[in-house]
């Protein structure tokens, strides 16, 4: 399992379009992708999981990736967060 800390860099937090992108990205890997926040587990492979996470600008998320392609999945997610999910 890979655990990493990623920050929400786009100013407007996770809205519908960003959520859609995260889900499409996480969903393309076999590994599970989750966030633990306040004792709850949010599945980043589902759009409602991402949305109900209620993550805001500047917030750091501890993301856990586990599975056969975890290294690649972690790397891709890291890039997606760093490029602010493709938002300008």
């Amino acid at each position: 399992m890979i655990a990493m800390e990623l920050k929400i860099l786009n100013e407007f937090g996770i809205h519908a379009r960003v959520a859609s992108r995260i889900v499409r990205c996480a969903g393309s890997f076999a590994s599970s992708v989750c966030v633990k926040k306040e004792g709850e587990v949010f599945d980043l492979k589902t759009v409602l999981g991402v949305i109900t996470l209620n993550a805001k600008y500047g917030e750091s998320l501890t993301i856990e990736v586990e599975g056969p392609d975890e290294a690649e999945a972690a790397k891709t997610l890291e890039e997606l967060f760093a490029m602010k999910f493709g938002e300008n």
Partner: peptide
Amino acid sequence: FDYQLLLLEDTGF
């Protein structure tokens, strides 16, 4: 509507 399409695939829902 793109977001709604994902709702249709949401494993939680």
